[in-house]
Design a protein around this nucleic acid. Structure first.
Lengths: 244, 244
DNA sequence: TACTGACCTATTGTCGGACAATGTGTCAAT
DNA sequence: ATTGACACATTGTCCGACAATAGGTCAGTA
């Protein structure tokens, strides 16, 4: 077809989407500060010149991403999306993609040693205290599978938080949400590797206190490889889709 | 306060949230297959025994996460959330957290070399063809800053896709969306490092064709370090928040 | 046949108004 | 200082209505 004139698609978007974008950009740009209360639905409806129903649909759009939350279960408030809020939507996406343990493990292998290394230079006194407390608790609950799993997950989470790197925190959110609960849970039930877990954690914690990035990274790698071996020994379908 | 009876909070959730959860789990469990059309709003309203407004709010909740999309701009369809859909919400979260280039670079340093390594064993013929085509294009547009940036981003994206690891794909989505556009863009404008970029890409591509994971990983590390040096040379606020 | 145009229908987008449920603030009573 | 009564503001839900539009059908025309 020569000589054909091509018009670009006109972008007609429904009002609720437009409103949602307006509010989002107002929050991102800082025009509405996080923690600040939004006007009431009726006010917003008047300001934007649409009905309350439309406003409400726009709000739902934002609510899911964790940009809007509730102050007191009534009024709306602009909030900073936390890792867990974003993590949930990422996790459900991964579930639908039938992500396998193997795939998640690979990502963990990329991020967790990195987190260990970074934490060495960024961990505050407070972070170290929290990690130390976690170690104590881990030792106490060594024989309680459920509690041990929680402590294990918390250790990795504290470690990631100690990097104070929000990108890293968000990137590894699915690990917290999907990988560790399912995979570690299975390993712990099958092998009771409490002692090995504790030893690895202690070395990592020690490396952080000594400000020894390489050691922290290496021990975390060992920790993850150990975990992988656990899965294989336990014969727990490493290449199976994660289910939740 | 001794002897005080504590009731647990009763979890009252609004209807639109309940409906949304029902639909979500129906999709995740496969009861509604992806690609399948959902009933119309009116039907859903009847089935759930609520009004259409409520249904619509529930739909908005899911629409944002990429779980629901439009078949033909009219009927709703269950869709697999793609990396870019999820990536958008992650990115906006990161923007609000005032994530710095440095933080994103650290994550990139954890994920991109990993992707290179994995791609060696997982890349299909098709993947390699796409990468090869990208290299050709890169060479052609070497002097066009904008096109070069696009090619560069596409290379990394193709590489990640070649791993066929959806967890990795989602984890690095913010890199595509935030990091490369802003940071690479600045470097390219400041230093015109087209030649260096192409060389690195070629080595990585070569390593993948030779099935040489270590070489692929090393060259990607070099590539990323090179990039970092570019930022520092160009004196482009590496520790500044990304803005978009 | 292949294209056009008129028409109908189904479905979404938007509106406006209504009421119930519930959290909040005030003020008097004890 | 706590309680109770009360009015008020705000969200959650419902209902009914209409405009806009994508899709299908069907006849008409070249």
């Amino acid at each position: 077809m020569p000589n054909q004139i091509n018009f670009e698609k006109i972008a007609h978007q429904p009002a609720y989407r437009a409103v949602s974008e307006k509010i989002r950009s107002a929050i991102i740009s800082g025009e509405i500060k996080t923690g600040e209360l939004l006007p009431t639905e009726t006010d917003l409806a008047v300001q934007f010149g649409v009905t309350r129903s439309t406003i409400r649909e726009a709000i739902r759009l934002l609510e899911h991403g964790g940009i809007l939350g509730r102050a007191d279960r009534k009024r709306l408030v602009a909030t900073l999306p936390q890792a867990d809020a974003v993590g949930r939507s990422v996790s459900s996406a991964l579930l639908m993609h039938q992500v396998t343990y193997e795939e998640l493990w690979q990502v963990a292998m990329g991020l967790e040693p990195l987190a260990s290394k970074l934490a060495c230079t960024t961990a505050t006194k407070k972070d170290k205290q929290l990690l130390a407390a976690n170690l104590v608790r881990t030792r106490e609950v060594m024989d309680d599978h459920k509690a041990l799993l929680e402590a294990e997950i918390e250790f990795h989470d504290l470690l990631a938080k100690a990097t104070h790197n929000s990108a890293l925190l968000l990137a590894r959110a699915p690990l917290n949400e999907l990988f560790y609960p399912a995979a570690w849970g299975a390993v712990i039930r099958a092998l009771s590797p409490g002692e090995r877990i504790l030893v690895a954690h202690q070395h990592i914690y020690g490396a952080i206190c000594d400000n020894n990035p390489n050691k922290a990274e290496e021990w975390m790698k060992k920790h993850m490889l150990d975990f992988r071996r656990g899965i294989e020994l336990g014969n727990l379908g490493f290449d199976q889709p994660v289910k939740s």
